[in-house]
């Protein structure tokens, strides 16, 4: 894509845009070949169905409400039955409908906090990389400060000090502590893009910094940012689960970590496998599926691996 002259700026922009879509399409073709990627997508689809299905049980009967619906006939934990496919928890709530709701919460937590951290990380990375100098130093030092903090431990401390956090604050905090790594990668990517001819060309025609960053650099770093997003989703889900498990989650939200906390704290850990196993397995599988998708995307984006494949 050698575009050198100033007059071609517009077409350079157009071509980078076009190139982006083109890459997406060719990327998908490569992705389809990847076994991990396919398994990951199928799993994700299953979880999406669960999340969508979570609205159904409470409509059938209010006793299936995951938080407040109790079975009037059952006041202790029972095993699977026709009435309750996965059994009930200690006050007679349906575990299956809790599990479905958990999938919804996992998606909300994972995707929204990953999205936020990617937005912050990408912007900081691009600005730092493009501006350089003092801006770069300050932003990267800030990234260092955040980066040395062990995320789970810091959020635990905040939860312990400031009281139980609501699910959205937890999402926000996870995002706040997970952007620096993204920023670093995007920054180095930006540094190399900055020296590309089409950016020079844009600058010569008098495009503003803002315009260059968002119109010319962003489309090129976006795939990388998306890749990082899949990894951030997994870590966000795991952090929320760990918080909830330790009793620092949002008690008004039925997440899988919260279900594990209930089974743990009420003394059913080793007596109710029907209650203990499903949430734990779901946490692993959903993070696994995001991981697999991420790995597959990684291979799509990393030309070296593709080349090697082509050689065979």
């Amino acid at each position: 894509m050698p575009v050198t002259s100033a007059e071609n700026t517009f077409s350079a922009y157009r071509s980078s845009r076009f190139h982006f879509l083109e890459r997406l399409k060719s990327g998908w073709l490569v992705y389809r070949e990847n076994l991990l990627g396919r398994i990951g997508l199928v799993l994700l689809a299953c979880f999406a169905c669960m999340a969508a299905g979570s609205f159904i049980p409470p409509l059938i009967d209010p006793i299936y409400h995951p938080m407040s619906g109790v079975d009037p006939l059952i006041s202790y934990s029972t095993g699977p039955s026709l009435r309750h496919w996965l059994g009930t928890d200690f006050i007679g709530r349906d575990i299956f409908s809790q599990l479905l709701t958990g999938a919804r919460i996992a998606f909300i937590v994972g995707v929204s906090s990953a999205f936020m951290s990617i937005v912050v990380g990408t912007i900081v990375g691009m600005v730092a990389g493009y501006a350089g100098g003092t801006t770069d130093t300050i932003l990267m030092r800030a990234a260092d400060v955040v980066m040395v903090m062990p995320t789970l431990l810091v959020i635990l401390i905040l939860a312990a000090l400031f009281g139980q956090l609501s699910i959205w604050i937890i999402v926000l905090l996870i995002a706040l502590f997970r952007w620096p790594a993204v920023a670093r990668v995007i920054r180095s990517q930006t540094l190399s893009l900055k020296r590309r001819p089409f950016v020079d060309a844009a600058r010569v025609t008098g495009a503003s910094c803002f315009r260059i960053i968002f119109r010319h650099i962003m489309p090129n770093v976006l795939p990388l940012a998306l890749l990082y997003m899949t990894f951030r989703v997994t870590s966000a889900i795991l952090i929320e689960a760990a918080l909830a498990f330790l009793g620092f989650g949002d008690p008004g939200t039925v997440s899988w970590g919260m279900m594990l906390q209930w089974v743990w704290k009420t003394g059913h850990m080793f007596q109710a496998p029907y209650w203990l196993l499903p949430p734990g397995i779901c946490i692993s599988l959903i993070t696994l599926s995001f991981y697999m998708v991420g790995r597959a995307m990684d291979e799509v984006l990393d030309p070296r691996l593709r080349k090697e494949k082509a050689l065979e």
Binding site: L36, F245, Y291
Partner: peptide, 15 residues
């Protein structure tokens, strides 16, 4: 690879 990824995503306190 799949086993490694699966183990890596296990929820620690649960395991």
């Amino acid at each position: 690879t799949i086993v490694a990824l699966f183990c890596h995503t296990l929820f620690l306190p649960w395991l």
